[in-house]
């Protein structure tokens, strides 16, 4: 039964960035769009263009006030809404390709195998067994997960305790804690997710994806983990004590034939998902009834960045071919 898809395309403010949109974070009211040319475009409220890096921005994190960008020029730069940029670290040219923000403004980043943490008490570093694939802070306490080849390391940078190793064969490329802090989930080279229940180290395998998973996002009620990588959004149940162990995922918002979901971002307050596809299309999908609303038509290149402002009133997206947009709800 063909249904005319509702559309919000006319409400989108389109922004041409001219290069790959690597990440978007909100700084105050405005969106800070980080690009493959090392630029940060501030849009919505304030408007500015800052050349933060000499090369490409490889990764970014935001605390709501500043955007922290890691570049292939070996620099870690914090930029605020006024366009003030401050270099926080300089590796001397080696890529800084991971950055994460923790509770109370703790910052982590990595250069090759070395993970760095900077908090009030100063800077510490830890050597991982192989190049760091991903970094994530636990929601509470100062605890950093470092994803790498054959597992992940849990590190309390302020304690002298030996870091704890969670082993699972294969290359782990990204990391995320569940909002309640009970689970750690990694994305893998093997086109699967792996998870550990931290209380007892119980493994969770979440596999069957046709491509690598790049986006992980928990729904507002924290019951589902929404993921990219397949033709539809794959949602794993995290409602119960066991998480998704032995359970089937739930699927939503299939894209047109031949496309993949390349980005997913759950609304921070409502049971609503923003979904980006490999053809550049962006949709909003309601969890309760799978109702879809079109946000942006296909533009020819994969959606590479997708973010909600913390109050959930603005959605920002960007693609690999430099098409970005802001939607006010």
């Amino acid at each position: 039964m063909p249904v005319e898809t509702a559309s919000l395309t006319s409400k989108v403010r389109a922004i041409e960035t001219g290069s790959h949109v690597v990440a978007i974070h909100f700084t105050g009211e405005s969106a800070a769009i980080a690009t493959g040319k090392g630029e940060i475009l501030i849009a919505g409220g304030c408007e500015a263009l800052i050349q933060a890096h000499k090369g490409a921005i490889l990764a970014a994190a935001g605390d709501g006030k500043r955007i922290f960008t890691a570049g292939d020029d070996g620099k870690l730069v914090a930029t605020d809404i006024e366009g003030e940029a401050e270099t926080l670290a300089d590796s001397g040219g080696q890529w800084i390709d991971q950055v994460a923000l923790g509770p109370s403004g703790t910052l982590a980043w990595s250069v090759g195998k070395t993970a760095f943490v900077r908090a009030n008490k100063g800077e510490r570093s830890l050597e991982a067994p192989s190049t760091v694939g991903g970094l994530a802070f636990a929601p509470k306490g100062l605890r950093l997960a470092i994803a790498h080849y054959n597992g992940a390391t849990l590190w309390f940078p302020n304690a002298d305790a030996k870091p704890e190793t969670l082993a699972w064969k294969g290359s782990h490329l990204g990391a995320l804690f569940s909002p309640d802090g009970r689970f750690l989930i990694t994305t893998m080279q093997e086109q699967a997710l792996h998870g550990w229940r931290l209380a007892d180290g119980q493994h969770m395998r979440m596999s069957g994806y046709p491509t690598r998973v790049r986006f992980l996002s928990f729904t507002a009620n924290e019951e589902w983990l929404a993921t990219s990588g397949a033709q539809e959004v794959i949602l794993w149940p995290f409602r119960t004590r066991d998480g998704p162990m032995g359970k089937e995922p739930f699927m939503l918002a299939p894209g047109p034939s031949g496309t993949r979901v390349t980005a997913v971002a759950c609304h921070p307050k409502q049971e609503l998902l923003a979904v980006g596809y490999s053809d550049g299309m962006v949709m909003l999908v309601r969890l309760a009834d799978a109702a879809e609303v079109l946000v942006s038509r296909p533009s020819g290149a994969p959606v590479s960045a997708l973010t909600w402002r913390a109050d959930g009133k603005i959605l920002a997206f960007g693609t690999e071919n430099g098409k970005a947009g802001l939607l006010s709800l």
Binding site: S19, G36, A56
Partner: peptide, 9 residues
């Protein structure tokens, strides 16, 4: 992955 962000350069 990183170089692809500079695509076109």
């Amino acid at each position: 992955d990183g170089l692809l962000k500079r695509r076109g350069q």
